[in-house]
Write a protein that binds this DNA or RNA. Structure first.
Lengths: 196, 196
DNA sequence: AACGTAGGCCAACAAGTGTTGACTTCACTT
DNA sequence: AAGTGAAGTCAACACTTGTTGGCCTACGTT
């Protein structure tokens, strides 16, 4: 441990290659979202980013490393403490729809999660660390939180699957307000209704 | 057109290779279900079936041909005309759960549908040809059938996704009766409730 | 018994994959 | 202005993929 060791932890020092790194990540997100993990090739991503495939390896180590870096998923789920108790369903659905519309990373993780075991593990982590805490705020009985959160996940991911991945025409035709009106009560019930 | 042309249409003539064909199809279903389209290699399927990869090509032409032959999906959806009007939701969920538990083809199509455009197209076909007619029986307004069927598909496929593909622990922990009790009313509402 | 044909295996191809290492070029510090 | 290290390029590697054609074997018909 000499004085030459400089701190790297807090703020990552700006590198001259940051522009390239960002280009790679953007291209990777797009390819992973539209092609899934296996068919999104490093060569295609590099071509999109207008650099050499070896740069991808240099900066991200491997294809798995690139995927991990490309989709650092934060659902930014809203704090439900300020929301009226009978509005949490609609609030969640609204938030999810906005998220999916603007963010193609979500399609990428869902596609990869359906194909790749590592991707599935990542989705389980997202569920555990991001959806569970929110469900805890809305669900009275702590014992039942995981089950009820899983029901919500099924409904919301099913919507994403049919609308953004499988692209069922009727699922795409529904307007956002309509979806909120239909799914909101469902999610609300899964979170707050008494056991059926 | 000579007399030597024998009829092939009605009953496919039994071939000596039928056992092999069945072995290939069984192995293919398993691989497609667990690995998805891209990672399920013809070589691995052939190895499982204990034959040479070239036989797969001989009998099914190509990988796409094999997939098409392996998953000839028939949901065998029940006729709802005999079911009481307020029971169709529970009936559908029950049927779906039974189907998924016993049949790994469904996991295969879902996995492939999420990855592959051809697979997605196939799922759209299944929706159109198998789910829509059933929804027509339960939904009063013909105009709204596609939208309401899409909502049901979202809920049911979301359940399959979380439970059988992503394998979220809480989604797996729920018993079948519990799932029917939770999802039945949801599907029921999507099909028969007045517009929200 | 001879034969035609379908079932099956082997070896190989061309294409595409992730990944590696050596080389050149550029920007910045001293 | 020289030198140092990063940024970027090129070519190749080892491997896997779907797919093909030639060859041998054994059944079923005549």
């Amino acid at each position: 441990m000499t004085a030459s060791t400089h701190p790297e932890q807090p703020g990552p020092p700006p590198r001259r290659s940051d522009a390239t790194r960002r280009a790679i990540l953007a291209a990777a997100r797009e390819r992973f979202a539209s092609d899934g993990y296996e068919r999104a090739t490093i060569r295609a991503i590099a071509r999109d980013a207008r650099i050499d495939p070896s740069m991808v390896m240099r900066y991200f180590g491997s294809k798995e490393g690139l995927f991990a870096a490309a989709v650092a998923l934060d659902l930014r789920l809203p704090d439900l403490t300020g929301v009226p108790r009978d509005e949490v369903g609609r609030a969640l659905v609204t938030h999810f729809l906005g998220l999916w519309e603007e963010n193609e990373e979500l399609t990428a993780v869902l596609r990869v999660g359906a194909t790749n075991e590592a991707g599935a593990e990542r989705m389980r982590g997202i569920f555990q660390e991001q959806l569970l805490p929110v469900a805890r705020q809305a669900c009275p009985d702590p014992e039942q939180v995981p089950a009820r959160a899983a029901l919500c996940a099924a409904q919301l991911l099913g919507l994403a699957l049919t609308r953004y991945v499988l692209r069922l025409p009727p699922a795409r035709a529904l307007a956002r307000e309509e979806l909120v009106a239909w799914l909101g009560p469902t999610v609300q019930r899964y979170l707050t209704a008494p056991n059926p």
